[in-house]
Amino acid sequence: MENAYHVGMADLIVVSAPAKLITLGLGSCIGLVIFDSAAKIAGMAHIMLPDSRGNKTAEKIGKFADTAVPTVIEEMIKKGAAKARMKAKIAGGAQMFALADASTDFLSVGSRNVKETTAMLTRAGVPLVASDTGGNKGRTVEFSTTTWMLTIKTLGKGKTEI
């Protein structure tokens, strides 16, 4: 029996198999999964924003791409995972409201999230093996440590697996 863990907004959870990691309704946020299938350990973070710079309220480590990525890796190593075996998958980063207005730069937070998360993974040396990002639709994601697949549900589009 797989235990299901709900990863809430700005949360970060690392588990040993068998388990299911679920995040409901990713909009501009990123669902990041890092896993080591040999050590049977996986971690998920619900990243809201690209970077924690200039933000004093960094008490939610999972909130920012630049703090979430290293922390998931660290927590996994603590549980016995090896960095050399780690792989990553990401989903999310949609831009759901399109405004024809230059002053609404902050609405493009989705694409900035994707960019920063990808950059942080590269810097950490963890290969990004699959991703489903962008667009204008929200996603619900579920990661299984039985298949090591990330299932993505989108309204009107049904399920896809990456």
Binding site: G25, G27, L49
Partner: peptide
């Protein structure tokens, strides 16, 4: 038009 959670996700991120 989308899932409630993903709309609120954007709200929270903004």
């Amino acid at each position: 038009r989308d899932m409630l959670a993903s709309i609120l996700d954007v709200v929270a991120a903004i």
